[in-house]
Design a protein around this nucleic acid. Structure first.
Lengths: 221, 221
DNA sequence: CCACAGGAGGACACTCAGTTCCCTTCAGCA
DNA sequence: TGCTGAAGGGAACTGAGTGTCCTCCTGTGG
């Protein structure tokens, strides 16, 4: 029944447009009552995103049952792969929907609220894990937004190519950029218990300048 | 007239809630015709955000007339301060609206679409400036999202404090985190032609270890 | 002072999304 | 056979948003 409504809706949306199609048209084509439509979809927009509620629940569960030892950013990056998989499982449907949402402002707004719920799930998870750090909630919000933006960037370029390219590889690449940005570079800290780490840049200077800099750096604290 | 409609709308929204207030109620209180409401505000939601259209135009203009020599990320950070200023100029109004949007899902969705347009303006500007780099659009999207998230984080904590704290300082702090994340660390390059920069971390080590590390660091290249 | 054009606002009716209430149907069961 | 509860259908209603036409007000030229 749900599937019949989705199929009828997309058939009409594609041939005459979203706003030119009324709910009555959809239920007439599907051969069901108007009231039944709103039993399955709380609004006309929901029929365009029939699987997001399930995907959001799945992703939330994935984040919820992550062990304490996991790297939180890594976990969120893995979670966003679940979302991408939902798109790539039905390439033609995803591409059709993309063309639709690109045209209709109302659908774009609805999609934003969906994306926002994913982002909120990321941020909530990171908030819990980064609670100890000084700017925990700030970092959580910013990293969540960056991960979502990387996902959207990879997804949209895949959708623009009509589902031809390798979306998963594009997402990995984009997430790599985000992770590189948000993992503090001067703290290897776990590969080997090093007592001292020295970073020297700009080597075209005489040795005495290096020593001078070291002395001032050591003297500051 | 616009102001009268906004005032009447907020009076009713605050005393009986957004969804319990019809457009007819608003125009009755303001003493104008129903049709006039929709002349000034294309939808009922727009009356809640009466100044965003102007602010968006102002911000877009600010981004448009930026010289080529400016640091693009810095420019976007300056642009987002314009948005924050719009909020802090009317603290009580902003706080009232915040309480409203927090409760009403429809208003939250509308606010998301507004925020998205700001973010799009950031991303478009960065896309133009970062077009040369290999992952230009990806970096533009991610940085734009991070800047917007930092702004929202600072704004929301200010709104939660009923407009008491220093929003501007909070934003500066948040933007500092974003800039630190997205500016490649080993390239100061413009503050002063320094010949050598030394970073020493983990100082609880004997001096000979420090020297040893320096020697190996210098020997590597 | 009068005629007139144009824009701002108002009155009314209409479409359509979403809701409420109630009806029918049918399966399972005592 | 009668009962019950879930699934669906259907009519009527509310309210947002739109289109159309009318009125009023204002400024301008004769």
């Amino acid at each position: 029944m749900r599937d019949a409504l989705v199929a009828a809706a997309f058939q009409l949306f594609l041939e005459r447009g979203y706003e030119q199609t009324t709910v009555d048209d959809i239920v007439a084509l599907a051969g069901v009552g108007r009231r039944s439509f709103f039993r399955y979809f709380p609004s006309k927009e929901d029929v365009v995103f029939p699987d997001h509620e399930r995907c959001l629940a799945e992703m939330t569960a994935f984040l919820a049952d992550s062990g304490d030892e996991d790297e939180p950013v890594q976990r969120v990056c893995d979670a966003v792969r679940i979302v991408l998989r939902m798109y790539t499982e039905n390439p033609t449907f995803s591409v059709q929907r993309y063309r639709l949402t690109k045209k209709v402002p109302g659908l774009r707004a609805y999609e934003l609220s969906v994306v926002w719920r994913y982002e909120r799930a990321f941020a909530d998870h990171l908030r819990g894990r980064l609670a100890g750090r000084p700017d925990g909630t700030l970092q959580a919000d910013v990293i969540a937004a960056a991960v979502a933006a990387a996902h959207n960037n990879a997804l949209r370029s895949w959708l623009r190519s009509d589902g031809q390219g390798d979306a998963s590889a594009a997402l990995d690449h984009a997430l790599g950029y985000v992770q590189q940005a948000f993992t503090t570079p001067p703290a290897p800290a776990d590969e080997e218990p090093e007592d001292v780490v020295v970073v020297v840049s700009r080597r075209r200077a005489p040795l005495w300048r290096v020593v001078q800099e070291i002395e001032s750096a050591l003297a500051q604290e």
